[in-house]
Design a protein around this nucleic acid. Structure first.
Length: 473
RNA sequence: UCCUUCUUAGCUCAGCUGGUUAGAGCACAUGACUGUUAAUCAUGGGGUCCUUGGUUCGAGCCCAAGAGAGGGAGCCA
C-alpha cells in the first residue's frame, strides 16, 4: 500500500534512458528508470536486463545481483515486460556500454507471457510486423521511424515558422469534388441501406448532414490559395485521403501532406523554396536523429546516411519537360514505353533521369493536357508552369506549380476540362477580386519519410497504414 | 485494377517424379553456468500444411475457384 504522495512520486520520478546515456547524470547516483524489457539474461549469480523506454533507440543495462530482493522478481520478467527499476547508476564493469544500473529494487507493471507475446528477441520481417502494428512501435525499427517522424513534422513547422509562413488548417471534409487529385471517400450520415431519394431515383443529398454531397479532402491546395491571397505565405499540414485502388509501396489511402502556397512567388521562387525545404529537412534529420539513422543505416540501407548527405550538398538538377524528353529520346531503346513529346513520363523514365544525373531532378513546364486545370499557362500555348521534384527510387516527392491567376484563362481551362464552375465559384472569385501571381506545391510527408529513413514500403513509415482492404488498428 | 511470385510450428524457411508417424534454424519451456551483450551448453514441448471444391487407391505436392501477402506497373504525394 502506498500513500498518494508515494504514488505520485512513483509515477513521475524517473529519468529518461536518453539522458542517462548522454551523460546528463554523473555516476554514482541513485535513480529510477521505467520501460520495456528487450532481453533478460539470467545466471545463478547475476541477471542482466536490456531496458528501453522509447526516449532513444539505445537500451540501458540493468544489473541485478542475487543478493538483492529484485533477483527473485526477475523470474517473472521476460521480453516485452514493463518494469520500474531503482538503483545506482554506475560505470559499467562490462564492455559494450559506458554506464549501467546496479539495481536493488524492481517492480513489474506488466508481464508479457513469452509463449504468447509475438515480439521475441529475434529478427522479424517488416511484413510480419505490419500484422501486429499495435505492438511494432516497441521494436527498434519502428521506434526509430516514429521518433524520426516526429522530428520531421517538427522541422517542417520550424522551417516555415522561421520564414514567416502561417500554418493554415484546411478542412478535412470538403463539399467540392473538383480538386482533381483522385477518387474521393464519401462522407455521409444517410442510411446506406435505404437513403432518401429524389423522384428520378438519385440520392437526395439535401437530407444529408451538410445538405449536400461531401467527401474527405484529397488536397488542401485550393483552400491554401485562399489563405495565401490574404496572409501572403501559408502552409497546410494535415491528413489527405485518396480512394484510389493503389497497391504499391508508395501509396496510402490516408496520408499526410504539406502544402505551402505563396503570394508573389513565380515558378522559380517555388522551386527554390522546395529545394531549400527538402535540404533543411534532410539536414535536420542528420543533425537530430543520429542514433536512429545509424541503426537504420546499419540494418536496412548501408548507403542511407551517405545518400542523405549528398542530397544536402549538391544542387538539384533543373530541366524542362522538353529538355528531359530530348534526353530520354536518345535512350528510347532502353525503355519499355518509348518517349515522345506530349506523353506523360513513366516510372522508368523518371528513374532514368534521376540515375542519369545522380541525384534529385526538378522537371518543369509540362504539356498542359497532362496537368491540372489551375496551373499557369505559358506563352507557348502548349505548356504550363508545373514542377515535379523526382527523388531516387521514390519518384515524385513533390508536385507543384505556379497558379493561373488570370480569371479568363483559368475559366477557359475549367471549361475545357469539363469541371463544373459552380463547384468552385469561391476559388474562381479569388481571380476576380485582387488576384495576384502565386505558386505552391505539395510534399507527401510519408514519401519524405521513406527517403529519410531508407524504408522501402510506405506502410512502414506511418503508425497505422490505411490501404485498400486494410484499416485494422 | 493489370502482370508476377508466394501462403507448411510463435517467426523465417526446407519438404524429392504424388506414397506410411511433416523437418530445420531461431523463439519458447526446463536444467546448467561467477559479468552477460539478440550470451553459451544440454534436454523438451509445439502443426486445421490459407479456405472450399475436384482428380487419385492415396494430395503439403496435381487441377479449379476464392481469400490474404510480397514485388513490378498504372493512378499520384
Amino acid at each position: 500500500m502506498h500513500s498518494l504522495k508515494e504514488i505520485i512520486q512513483h509515477m513521475i520520478e524517473h529519468t529518461s534512458i536518453k539522458s542517462l546515456l548522454k551523460g546528463e547524470v554523473a555516476p554514482p547516483t541513485n535513480i529510477i528508470v521505467k520501460g520495456w524489457v528487450r532481453t533478460i539474461r539470467t545466471s545463478k549469480n547475476v541477471n542482466f536486463i536490456a531496458l528501453n523506454d522509447g526516449s532513444t533507440i539505445l537500451n540501458i543495462q540493468l544489473v541485478i545481483d542475487n543478493n538483492t530482493p529484485a533477483f527473485e522478481i526477475c523470474q517473472n520478467i521476460s521480453t516485452g515486460a514493463c518494469i520500474r527499476a531503482e538503483g545506482t547508476l554506475v560505470a559499467s564493469q562490462g564492455k559494450g556500454q559506458s554506464v549501467e544500473i546496479q539495481c536493488n529494487s524492481v517492480v513489474i507493471y506488466g508481464t508479457a507471457d513469452p509463449e504468447k507475446y509475438p515480439l521475441q528477441k529475434k529478427g522479424h520481417t517488416l511484413e510480419f510486423l505490419r500484422e501486429i502494428a499495435h505492438l511494432r512501435p516497441r521494436t527498434n525499427t519502428f521506434g526509430a521511424v516514429l521518433r524520426m517522424r516526429h522530428q520531421m513534422a517538427f522541422a517542417i513547422h520550424q522551417f516555415f515558422n522561421d520564414k514567416g509562413f502561417f500554418y493554415m488548417h484546411a478542412p478535412i471534409v470538403t463539399g467540392s469534388d473538383a480538386e482533381g487529385a483522385g477518387e474521393m471517400f464519401k462522407v455521409t450520415t444517410l442510411p446506406l441501406e435505404n437513403p432518401p431519394r429524389n423522384t428520378d431515383g438519385s440520392i437526395n443529398y439535401m437530407e444529408d448532414f451538410f445538405g449536400k454531397a461531401t467527401n474527405l479532402t484529397v488536397s488542401g491546395q485550393l483552400e491554401a490559395e485562399l489563405g495565401a491571397l490574404a496572409l501572403g505565405n501559408v502552409y497546410t499540414f494535415g491528413p489527405t485521403f485518396r480512394a484510389e485502388n493503389s497497391n504499391t509501396p508508395r501509396h496510402l489511402a490516408e496520408f499526410w501532406m504539406i502544402e505551402p502556397e505563396m503570394a508573389f512567388y513565380d515558378i522559380h521562387d517555388n522551386m527554390d523554396l522546395a529545394e531549400e525545404m527538402l535540404k533543411y529537412l534532410i539536414n535536420y534529420a542528420l543533425q537530430n536523429s543520429k542514433d536512429d539513422l545509424e541503426f537504420l543505416n546499419q540494418m536496412y540501407d548501408k548507403e542511407l546516411i551517405t545518400r542523405l548527405q549528398s542530397v544536402v550538398d549538391k544542387p538539384f538538377i533543373r530541366l524542362t519537360y522538353t529538355e528531359a524528353v530530348e534526353i530520354l529520346i536518345g535512350f528510347n531503346n532502353k525503355f519499355e514505353f518509348k518517349v515522345e513529346w506530349g506523353t506523360d513520363l513513366q516510372k522508368e523514365h523518371e528513374n532514368f533521369l534521376v540515375t542519369h544525373h545522380g541525384g534529385p531532378v526538378i522537371l518543369t513546364d509540362y504539356p498542359k493536357h497532362i496537368k491540372a486545370f489551375y496551373m499557369k499557362q505559358n506563352e507557348d500555348g502548349k505548356t504550363v508552369r508545373a514542377m515535379d521534384i523526382l527523388f531516387p527510387w521514390i519518384g515524385e516527392i513533390i508536385g507543384g506549380s505556379q497558379r493561373e491567376e488570370n480569371y479568363d484563362k483559368l475559366v477557359s481551362r475549367v471549361t475545357e476540362m469539363g469541371i463544373d464552375e459552380d463547384e468552385i465559384w469561391w476559388y474562381l472569385d479569388t481571380r476576380r477580386f485582387g488576384t495576384c501571381p502565386h505558386a505552391g506545391f505539395g510534399l507527401g510527408f510519408e514519401r519524405l519519410m521513406l527517403f529519410v529513413t531508407g524504408m522501402t514500403n510506405i506502410r512502414d513509415v506511418i503508425p497505422f497504414p490505411r490501404t485498400p482492404k486494410n484499416a485494422e488498428f
